[in-house]
Design a protein around this nucleic acid. Structure first.
Length: 529
DNA sequence: AAGAACACCAACCGCGTTCGG
DNA sequence: CCCGAACGCGGTTGGTGTTCT
């Protein structure tokens, strides 16, 4: 890394430079060590590096605040630790990530989320900062290109691992460890699918065509069709789109002609409709809802990460995913009688969250993990759904409520039938696969026959318990939750089933090709031109 | 050739956790 | 148990080089 102009060739700052640059604002690290002493900030010089290395050789790592006292280095302990950890410590591996490392990072991120330090532990010689920078760069690039953040292989693998580990969790792990266990960790892309369905499905009946296509594309790791964030110039997007793998794309195109139409369509219309590649005539009653659906959710049809760290869309921070809604709202979720009030309440909640509810939510969300809070809230959601559904169904009177409550009860029943709590990973992945399945039908206006849509349901479930459009439009999460509940018992035991929908969609040959090549395709698409 | 956009990297900052007094 | 210091982690910022228009 190049040093700044503040650094002389010998790497030592003049007194003037030091004075002008480096007035410690007292914010550094523990703060106390400096105590008003002038501490340097900014790029490290080689002289400083030498001092620090020398110090660590003599005193070892740790006690970083003592460095300044003992070595005369005008750096706060925090800065010293960082410099040592990221640049000076031995066995650091420099240079670009290898393909193996990239793959590992992606897999690890799918499992861990933004746990850079934990990820770094799996990559000898790499630092958390390095990995973080890599990921953030990559995520921006992929988001711009409208590509999925994870290859389908990773999703499936994570899913399979979640199946494999869910039963053997626990052991010596404490509660916190269990929470962070793979079985409960969700690739962000899954949440993205969740979000996509959240923001899109309920508003426009035709939308499933699109949303499910998007999920299908994600699920298949399609490198062809991409949702381009509206902020990207079309020209730019087109250029990036050409980086997709042609052969694979063609194959997918042939199997799913919808894709072709869709891509053309979205390229033309996405900029106008904020990612919704079709005309939207928002119901006046749901105007706010559309605002909600559009401005914060404009990225929901992109394949962006759901990580809160992603700065590409400023609205990301404003948008609360479903699992961040407070429990007090869950009753409404479960019993909403029509979309508009629900959506308005969502919008209102986002704009002025109830302090208490928000505080509760925040307390549940370890800063931006994007995964753990999801787990906690999903758990709470499901458990409170059990409670609220029955409560609300007895308290509220609208027919819609009754219908939805009954659906919830069915879900509850099936959930119990599952035997074990499925991880959100399973929850989400199965739902997105169910979307893939449903996408195989042309339009979701034409609701597939119950036998088709619920083909793999438990036999005891009556056909009239198939998800209703009312339910879909009321609570997209309910669709997903229901999908999970529908399929959970079916997919739970047999992992291979998970790929069958893909085979169904693509045909066996393409499916196997997809499985084998997904990584290469994925990495290729990540590399760009 | 110039400026904009982007990629990459290093470092800073704030917050949460841990630990010792 | 409480408090403060130290530490670690993750998010963010800012600088520089490269590529594109």
């Amino acid at each position: 890394m190049s040093h700044t102009k503040n650094e002389r060739e010998d790497g030592i700052l003049s007194e003037e430079q030091t004075e002008s640059l480096l007035i410690d604002d007292g914010n550094c690290g523990g703060g106390g060590a400096g105590g008003g002493v002038v501490l340097k900030k900014g790029p490290w010089t080689s002289a400083e590096d030498a001092i620090l290395i020398d110090y660590v050789k003599k005193h070892g790592e740790g006690n970083w605040n003592a460095v300044q006292k003992h070595s005369g280095l005008f750096r706060c302990g925090k800065s010293c630790r960082l410099r040592w950890a990221n640049h000076l410590r031995p066995n650091l591996k420099k240079g670009a990530f290898t393909q193996e490392e990239e793959q590992l990072i992606i897999e690890l991120h799918a499992k861990m989320g933004n746990k850079w330090a934990r990820m770094a532990a799996h990559l000898p010689g790499r630092t958390d900062n390095e990995i973080k920078n890599y990921w953030n760069t990559r995520i921006k690039r992929r988001q711009r290109a409208g590509l999925p953040l994870y290859p389908p292989e990773v999703c499936l693998q994570a899913l399979q691992e979640s199946h494999g580990t869910s039963a053997v969790n626990g052991g010596d792990k404490g509660p916190h460890d269990i929470l962070q266990n793979n079985s409960y960790e969700i690739p962000d892309v899954i949440f993205d699918s969740l979000k996509a369905s959240q923001n899109v499905l309920p508003y426009v009946p035709e939308l499933p065509d699109i949303s499910s296509s998007s999920m299908l594309m994600k699920g298949l790791g399609s490198q062809y069709c991409s949702f381009m964030p509206p902020t990207i110039h079309r020209q730019k997007r087109l250029r990036e789109a050409t980086t997709f793998v042609p052969g694979y794309s063609a194959a997918v195109k042939n199997e799913c002609p919808l894709f072709e139409l869709f891509q053309d369509d979205i390229l033309d219309k996405a900029p106008r409709s904020f990612g919704m590649p079709f005309p939207i005539e928002p119901d006046p009653a749901t105007k706010n809802s559309f605002q909600f659906g559009v401005f914060p959710g404009s990225h929901t049809l992109s394949n962006g990460n759901f990580s809160a760290s992603e700065p590409a869309f400023e609205a990301v921070k404003l948008e609360l995913p479903s699992f961040q809604y407070p429990e007090t709202e869950l009753g409404n979720w479960g019993t909403c009688s029509s979309p508009p009030p629900l959506l308005e309440s969502v919008d209102a909640f986002i704009q002025s969250p109830p302090p208490t509810s928000r505080a509760e939510t925040d307390s549940l969300s370890p800063r931006n993990s994007g995964l753990l809070d999801a787990l906690i809230h999903e758990a709470k959601t499901l458990s409170s759904a059990k409670n609220h559904a029955s409560d609300k169904s007895s308290n509220s009177a609208t027919p819609g409520d009754i219908a939805e409550s009954s659906t919830f009860n069915i879900c509850e029943t099936e959930w119990k039938n599952c035997g074990e709590p499925l991880s959100p990973m399973v929850y989400s992945a199965t739902s997105f696969l169910s979307e893939c399945l449903s996408a195989s039908g042309s339009s979701l206006d034409e609701q597939p026959p119950a036998e088709t849509f619920t083909e793999s349901r438990v036999k005891s479930e009556p056909a009239d318990h198939v998800l209703t459009p009312e339910l879909d439009s009321c609570r997209p999460d309910t669709l997903i939750a229901s999908s999970w509940l529908e399929h959970g018992s079916c997919y739970d035991k047999d992992q291979t089933v998970m790929t069958d929908p893909i085979a169904t969609l693509l045909g066996d040959d393409l499916s196997s090709e997809y499985k084998n090549d997904s990584w290469n395709i994925y990495l290729k698409s990540s590399m760009g031109p």
